[in-house]
Design a protein around this nucleic acid. Structure first.
Lengths: 385, 385
DNA sequence: CCCATGTATGGAAACATTTACATTAACTTT
DNA sequence: AAAGTTAATGTAAATGTTTCCATACATGGG
């Protein structure tokens, strides 16, 4: 395509001068004007409207042309509009096949103002617990043609940023496994107004639907189990102290069970840390340092329990002979460590599936019968307690 | 906004009829006309000239207007074009702030034909190994404004589908941790022509760049370590047999070490299965069933090793006193099981980071000095062997 | 048989942004 | 005075699809 630049080159003048000529400005020498006009002719400059088109890829236009219909009808086929006559549809599908047409997803998303995407925020990608939940989510999302985008967002700012990205990318919904949701975060979520479901974090927000197990009761049951085994001094090894509602609920279940037996745990027997093997290890070491060893330990999750067992063994205690240990979550590895871990089984996959189903309902604007779903847990008695 | 369709629905006729009424065509029954007119009133249809503009959200146009410039200039600011005068830029930024303008990402992606997204395929989300690699990837991707989309794709068809989705979504690049890449898959990748890097699967394709550790040598070293400890009969518990190049390389490293000592392992001492705790458990049980127990076991990854240890303990063997066990990968949990696992440490985070950096270079069209990067491994001697 | 209506399809605007090209102003150079 | 240079900005096309309204044709009921 010929531009003013080309003309300028041909005439041996600057584009500014060509522009002046083109717009009949006065300050151009007649001889120069001649030169430029000649160049216009020689280069074959197109005075008509600028035609700029590449069309290197196959679009809906090509398909329409080949099928002998308008692009509107092709679009209808693309969107499974039943209004199209089967015969026409067939012809269009054939044309698509023939041209190897691939709809431009980016254009579709843009037009529809939706990316057919679900944003998922988890505190930790490495956590096998979350991985399993995510699989459940993906199962359902897949079935409905939604893509799942996974983001880590333990720290509140990172979390807000993640959700913001979802909004920016026009996610159709969000699934949050975030433990700490303060007013600021809730406010933020409300402003974005993306359908959102809370999974597995015990946060029963009045606004956001959620799906959980009953952590308090589960913790109560496993603590009772330890009590029934005859243990009196039972330590609690928790995760992050103030942030996590789930931890607090597990703690209060534990306390309730003890209280029922008239036991009040000494402060050093309740410790907080992180949801990791290493934290469990260190925390357990601290516990043993200045205190009479407990008869049993209830860890707020399996990772902590695994770390604690290691610490106990290192200090020469046998589990469960000297000290019993119980965990929470039932990770895949928990049945295969030594001793196999006694723990609370969470229906991780189902949490994901049901959470996603709930979200789907919200996206479709259906009324929710239940906004806070509680799934059953299971006590898994193995070797460690 | 109320459309003819809404009116039609309200009146209980087709949109065609509504349109006829709207344009005063003759062939409408008076009674129907009445109905439709009523529906117009009831729905509050806007007869004004087709105002199909919603403009409920702030766009570049509003910003341009407020700042007193053209939308082109606003776009330039959005894209950090240095050609904009600082003063003008300032004015535009202020206008954005004032209007709380959020660029429409979908529109930008559409226009630019790029989603600023990297597709990552891993065999298993639950695997802590992959999770760690992915974190490395995300670290670098984040820094450069790319979003990471994670997909599971163990089965070849699922994998192809995943990659296809990447293409459809105009991903800027792909990172594959796929063990089995046959001709069909490579062909497919070639057709899509998305920049692609292979991570950690030992597949040294002539076309696709890759990043790995030297699995053969690592396996050789750990097997030698077992031999030096005095073990003569060493079993190999592998992952998927034919699919995985990494497994085959670990196997041949193991074989090389034995061969050097003139040892040829009996067939039942080399077994295959899957990369999971449960598979390691079962496979080890099989191994013990009809054979003289080996003096040591080299498992192709830590999960298998953990399962094997469990099986050995169940059968009354003490690890490492009766039978030594070594693994591969060095998962976070491996140091905390009992006995702590002796294994090969892979620089997982770095694999992810470097892989992503490599991919970035490809995306930017830079020349690669190295197309097959090898990262160092480390022998971690702990308690199990 | 023809009026009234529905069905299937077409025409064209709209979506929000990017960007190629054009213009302009303010200089400087010849 | 005429032309060039450069920086800054404007104009408007182009992107690929969806969807609103319009309409040719088919069809059923009186």
């Amino acid at each position: 395509m010929i531009t003013l630049k080309d003309v300028a080159k041909n005439a041996g003048v600057s584009t500014a001068t060509v522009s002046r000529v083109l717009n009949n400005l006065s300050n151009v020498h007649p001889r120069t004007r001649e030169k430029v006009l000649l160049a216009f002719r020689e280069t074959g400059y197109d005075f008509g409207i600028n035609r700029r088109s590449s069309q290197s890829v196959v679009t809906i236009n090509h398909v329409a042309e080949i099928a002998g219909v308008s692009i509107a009808t092709v679009s209808r086929v693309l969107n499974n509009d039943p209004a199209v006559r089967p015969e026409t549809r067939e012809r269009i599908l054939e044309a698509m096949e023939k041209l190897r047409y691939r709809p431009n997803l980016l254009a579709r998303q843009f037009r529809k103002k939706s990316a057919r995407m679900i944003g998922v925020v988890i505190p930790d990608i490495s956590g096998p617990f979350f991985a399993r939940v995510v699989k459940g989510i993906e199962n359902i999302a897949d079935q409905h043609g939604y893509q799942v985008v996974l983001t880590e967002g333990k720290h509140p700012d990172k979390f807000l940023q993640a959700v913001d990205t979802f909004a920016e990318r026009k996610a159709d919904g969000a699934l949050l496994m975030i433990s700490k949701l303060g007013d600021r975060e809730l406010d933020f979520l409300a402003k974005l107004s993306i359908p959102t479901v809370l999974i597995s974090q015990d946060y029963s927000s009045p606004i956001l639907p959620s799906i959980n197990i009953d952590n308090e009761t589960a913790a109560y049951h496993i603590t009772r189990y330890l009590l029934e085994k005859g243990h009196r001094s039972i330590a609690f090894l928790g995760g992050p102290p103030n942030d996590t509602v789930a931890v607090q609920n597990r703690l209060s279940g534990y306390r309730r069970a003890l209280r029922e037996r008239g036991i009040i745990p000494l402060p050093p027997y309740v410790r907080f840390g992180e949801f990791s093997v290493i934290s469990g290890y260190k925390n357990c070491l601290h516990l043993l340092k200045n205190n009479e060893p407990p008869q049993a330990i209830f860890a707020a999750n399996d990772d902590i329990a695994i770390g604690a067992i290691k610490a106990l063994q290192k200090k020469g205690f046998s589990v469960p002979k000297n000290i019993a240990v119980a965990g929470f979550d039932d990770l895949p590895v928990s049945a295969y460590i030594s001793p196999a871990l006694t723990t609370v089984h969470q229906p991780k996959y189902r949490l994901g599936k049901e959470g996603m189903k709930l979200l789907l309902k919200m996206i479709h604007g259906e009324r929710l019968e239940e906004t806070h779903i509680i799934l059953p847990f299971q006590l898994k008695v193995r070797e460690s307690a």
